[in-house]
Amino acid sequence: MLELRLVQGSLLKKVLESIKDLVNDANFDCSSTGFSLQAMDSSHVALVSLLLRSEGFEHYRCDRNLSMGMNLGNMSKMLKCAGNDDIITIKADDGGDTVTFMFESPTQDKIADFEMKLMDIDSEHLGIPDAEYHSIVRMPSSEFQRICKDLSTIGDTVVISVTKEGVKFSTAGDIGTANIVLRQNTTVDKPEDAIVIEMNEPVSLSFALRYMNSFTKATPLSDTVTISLSSELPVVVEYKVAEMGYIRYYLAPKIEE
C-alpha cells in the first residue's frame, strides 16, 4: 500500500513538466527514503534523477519498496487536471496495475480521483558515484534559461568554460558566433540573484543546446540552478524542489576525437 499526500501539489505538476519532454516512460520508485525516478532520454545522452524526500510529504506511507512504470505524457495530462492550489495524493496497491491521483481543492469542496494504468518498463539504472567537480556555478535559473534560449538561436552546441575571469557560454553557427560571460556577483539584494563561481580547476566542455534547453523546463521549480562541471564527466544541472529534494540532469559532453 502506498499513499503519499503532497500539500503543495503544484510541485508535482512542475516536476512532470520538467521531465516529460526528455523521457517518455519511466519507473517511479517509492521507498522509505522518498519518491524518486532515474531515467535516460531515448538516445542515452542525458539522464534525469529526481528525488522527493518522504519528509516533504504531509503523509507518507510506503509499506514496501514499489516501482511504478508510468507514461510521463499521460501522467502530465492527469496532473494538469489538478488546480495549482490543490493537494495531491498518490495512491497505489502493492502489485496493482493502476495508480490513483487524488486532487483536493484547498477548501475541500472539490475532490477528484484520476486512475492511471501502470506499465511494465524495462529500464536500466545507472550508478552515479559522488564526484569532486572542477567548477561549480550557481546562478539565477531564469538567467540560465535566457542564455540557453538565446544561444540556441545562433548555434546547436554550447561551450561552457570556467576560468578565474568567470563563466563563459559560447556558440557558433551559420550566421555567426556568440559569447556570454558572467562574472561572480554576490553583492545583490536577494541571495537568489547571486552568481557564485567556485573554481577548483579551469574547465571547458561542449554540450548540445537542445538538451540544455529541455533542462530549463525546470526553471519554475527553483530561483537558482547549480551547474557542476568536470572535464572527465557529464555536466550536472541541478534544480532544488522546494525543501524536499531535487531534479538533477546529467548531460554527456561532446568530445573532439
Binding site: M40, H44, V45, A172, P253, I255
Partner: peptide, 14 residues
Amino acid sequence: PGVQKSIKDFYRSA
C-alpha cells in the same frame, strides 16, 4: 563540433 558521447560511457549499470 565534437562527437556526442553517451551517458553510458561515463556511468555503469547499478
